[in-house]
């Protein structure tokens, strides 16, 4: 694949929390139709990267370009409006809202109720369990159901770029497979995906391209297959 049509491009991004410099100038891109994985150990700066793209954090320097427009200093709600959805680490459901209301909030920016209904019906086909829990408070769902809700909520916005922060965290192996199949499906339907994962095995097996993050720097990149076979990656992230 010749990666020439970037959906989003990150250039020399640095981000700090007070004195701690979490990102020390990272650059990467996600091209049209790709699944791009961002892997790295705890504290490497993966979530920081996604939060900065979403406008929840302000970068110290660098540039973020989405569909050829700079979005670097836009407030969070305007970035969502442009077509970027973010499934945050830890799912972060609105526990005090029902499953339906959570999904409705996902579609906050969509004004046409027909579109919302159609999207919801399509989502219920991928996540039948959410349909059964329709009017239940989200706070009562199981961990797996919450992850599905978080993904479904992001899809309600019909994003062109979907960012997922550790969707496999805390799920049983069967559920991990199910979630990854759904991610693949979403991608095949035309959504570009930026996937942050601890589970490097899984991430490298479904992604088109991957970047390895170490203490706020991109230290390696390549196709999923290249990195999978790289001895250093094998040792550090795939358990030898």
């Amino acid at each position: 694949m010749n990666r020439t049509e970037p959906v989003i491009e990150i250039k020399d991004l640095t981000v700090s929390y007070g004195a701690i410099q979490a990102l020390q100038g990272i650059s990467f891109k996600v091209c049209k139709g790709e699944i791009v994985a961002l892997i790295g150990a705890n504290g490497a700066g993966k979530s920081t990267t996604l939060r900065t793209i979403s406008g929840l954090l302000k970068p110290r320097s660098g540039e973020i370009i989405f569909e050829n427009k700079p979005i670097t200093n836009l407030p969070g709600h305007e970035i969502a409006r442009l077509g970027i959805a973010h499934v945050p680490e830890g799912r972060r459901p609105f526990a005090n809202l029902t499953v339906y209301e959570n999904l409705r909030m996902g579609a906050y920016l969509i004004n046409d109720s027909r579109t919302i209904q159609e999207t919801m019906n399509r989502i219920f086909r991928s996540f039948p369990r959410l349909k059964e829990r329709f009017s239940q408070p989200a706070g009562t769902l199981s961990g797996g159901e919450l992850q599905m809700l978080a993904i479904a909520r992001a899809l309600m916005a019909k994003p062109r770029l979907l960012m997922l922060d550790e969707p496999s965290m805390g799920l049983s192996p069967i559920l991990v497979n199910e979630i990854f199949n759904i991610i693949k499906e979403i991608n095949e339907q035309g959504t570009s995906i930026l996937l942050v994962e601890q589970n490097a095995h899984k991430a490298l097996s479904i992604c088109h391209y991957a970047y390895v993050l170490e203490t706020g720097r991109v230290v390696m990149e390549g196709t999923g297959k290249e990195l999978y076979e790289n001895p250093r990656i094998k040792e550090a992230y795939l358990g030898g």
């Binding site: 407030p75 969070g76 969502a80 945050p88 972060r92 609105f94 809202l97 909030m105 906050y108 916005a157």
Partner: peptide
Amino acid sequence: RAVSYDKNTAKLMGID
């Protein structure tokens, strides 16, 4: 209600 529960996540939904 969403904002009162979690402001950052609400922003991710495009809520001002």
